[in-house]
Design a protein around this nucleic acid. Sequence first.
DNA 1: TAGTGGTCTAGACCACTCG
DNA 2: GAGTGGTCTAGACCACTAG
Lengths: 252, 252
Amino acid sequence: MPLSSPDAISQHVDTVAIPVAGLRHKLLSYLEETDLMGGQRLPSERQMMVRFSTTRVTLRDALLQLEAEGCIYRENRRGWFVSPSRLRYDLLACLPFREMVESQQRKAQTDLLTAAEVPADTVIARRLGIEEGCAVYRITRIRRIDDRRVLHVCHHLRRDCFPGILEFDLAVHSLTDLYRNEYAIRVTRVSFELASTVLGNEAAEALNAAQGSPAQRVTRINFDQNGRAVDCDDEHWRHDAIELTLSAAPQR
Amino acid sequence: MPLSSPDAISQHVDTVAIPVAGLRHKLLSYLEETDLMGGQRLPSERQMMVRFSTTRVTLRDALLQLEAEGCIYRENRRGWFVSPSRLRYDLLACLPFREMVESQQRKAQTDLLTAAEVPADTVIARRLGIEEGCAVYRITRIRRIDDRRVLHVCHHLRRDCFPGILEFDLAVHSLTDLYRNEYAIRVTRVSFELASTVLGNEAAEALNAAQGSPAQRVTRINFDQNGRAVDCDDEHWRHDAIELTLSAAPQR
DNA sequence: TAGTGGTCTAGACCACTCG
DNA sequence: GAGTGGTCTAGACCACTAG
């Protein structure tokens, strides 16, 4: 239901004529009428501006509004598209990306962007519990769902935990599988930080999104069977692409 | 560090003159120079538009950009303010709001908006595992941190689990405390759904935010010692107000 | 190459806040 | 009552995409 909107729930009668909201509603109705499926492209801004007899600035405000709600999204300079339904991302299931996506009848793809050995900066060093400047492996990848680029990830791995891991084909192998099968390291605890922000420059470019598109940030640190932080991720998701889920016992 | 920005990290030299970004940087510099603390008000849009010799529309774009990043926020028709640092919200600690906030040296307040008995709609009935139309208690509240309204919550409680709970002063008592002390119900499992969206109409009004301000949605279902869903929340946070955290063992 | 989205200009009116 | 933010108009140029 990509077209559901926040006030579809609290549908109290609109007592006052609401500003952008008027146009927003027209757009939503239009999307429902024409029954555009997730991933389909909207008409050009100039066409819509005529159809709804408004100006481009006003139309754009309404479109940005719907983007913020997660109903539609942009590709840089390519136009507006209807958002597919959100992938459910179970934080504690810790499934490899491919399995998570395919279990929801979607197609998964991964592209390797960079893989290199770099010195740990302050943040990474703190997260991994190592000295600043220590060599770590830095891997950046993007992930696609049904061909749409939705996720930019930056991994940092302790080199002493995973010597030579860059030799593997990282567009194919799941990192967690490599950890277990090649390095006998099992992840026994994960720690997350989640925030709603925007895509950084690097992520926006890699995802072909506009500068400053809304994003869900998921930062994860993985700990092994010895309680040692072995790697961390910085994930930036197109914010309309996922819904995070989680079920657990509260901790005292 | 409310003023940190996404590309403060990936600070690769700006090779090209970037559009809104130029003004965005000027604004960030200005905020740093004038050393505005969290909660302080920015100059009026017309003043800033003169100071940065630009137009109001362009200025507004840049401000909206910074809002999306979580650096600044608006109060409806009152102006722009610097975002205080984010509250860390540990999902599995399950601390009452007041304790969570005060443990981070902030001031917590709660206002009761509505409390009533209503029939369960489809969504609520599914979540609580009851028949549609069953009577449930619906409670809406807002929460403040250091006087800033940051959270709108809508609770739905099973009436058969908490008969007469509306008699208590719900602006004062923690619901989880009431559950345990008055009804001998302990929450032994919680289930979350998290998504990045916008404030709905009701929440925006209650938080004095502009229509369609970015929000972090946190939906929670609480289960008691018998594995029964006893209540659920719909939380809408101003997206710059929190950072969600979480640490647990991955589930098989 | 035509058309698109990204960006920007220079105004305007209104409802609301604030002093 | 002065000034503010919220909304809107009617244009424009540019770099890029798509056919």
